[in-house]
Design a protein around this nucleic acid. Structure first.
Lengths: 115, 115
DNA sequence: CTATATACCTCGGAAAGCGAGGTAGCCTGA
DNA sequence: TCAGGCTACCTCGCTTTCCGAGGTATATAG
């Protein structure tokens, strides 16, 4: 049947950068922690896979939105901490604006009894 | 630079079925008209391309969410009119629920000063 | 007869998510 | 001692779906 596959599977597309940038607004975090924060804050509604998260972090770093440093982990493997650059902050503002416009548009189209 | 490309380009992913199904809630329409309605109702925020729209319609039809009939157009080329099936109505409800959960999750993560 | 608007379609390419799989360090318990 | 589990990172191949470009066809306006 026409199942959850189609909608759910693709919804995350394009919003991961926003989620990552927003998560890093309060301070630096490492990748695994970012994923956990997104899950928690979204109330488990969003759960980006590692196969999506790490490439997204690399992209943002390559674009200059994030800076990263390796740190030896206390009681655990080494971690890569990410923080926003000035450009990243601007990218976050842009991403929020884009998301608001997009979500608003979808809501207007999907709203019942609009004409 | 980290430009609009990244967010905007992929945002539509996964929401097209919802937009199409919602647009057809009030009655049958043909493809071109559906595209126009989405543009109008979203306040020009959403403008799915034909290369995305027609395949999406075919997918929904193949899945049984839509039924379609050809009609000779009065003053113009022939048109294919789409309408919701019972299954399509259910799919619409599901898509709306998924969208609400997803958008809510993104908003919670992106919201400033949440903890 | 050409241009424009409507209306449909398909193709190739790119982007980005997912799952599976792999490496590695540390801790716990049999 | 060593198996299992948690943290933490990474990559690869697969899939989906979007976009843009291009193509067909009909009707009307100039």
């Amino acid at each position: 049947m026409f199942e959850d596959r189609q909608i759910r599977a693709q919804l995350l597309k394009g919003t991961l950068p926003l989620l990552i940038l927003a998560t890093l607004r309060d301070g630096e975090l490492h990748g695994y922690h970012i994923a956990r924060r997104i899950r928690e804050r979204s109330g488990e509604a969003l759960a980006p896979s590692e196969g999506a998260l790490y490439p997204a972090l690399h992209r943002l770093e390559a674009e200059g939105a994030l800076e990263a440093t390796w740190r030896e982990g206390e009681g655990g493997p080494r971690r890569r901490y990410y923080r926003l650059t000035a450009g990243g902050l601007a990218a976050l503002a842009r991403a929020e604006r884009d998301w608001a416009a997009f979500a608003g548009g979808v809501n207007r189209v999907a709203a019942e009894g609009s004409s």
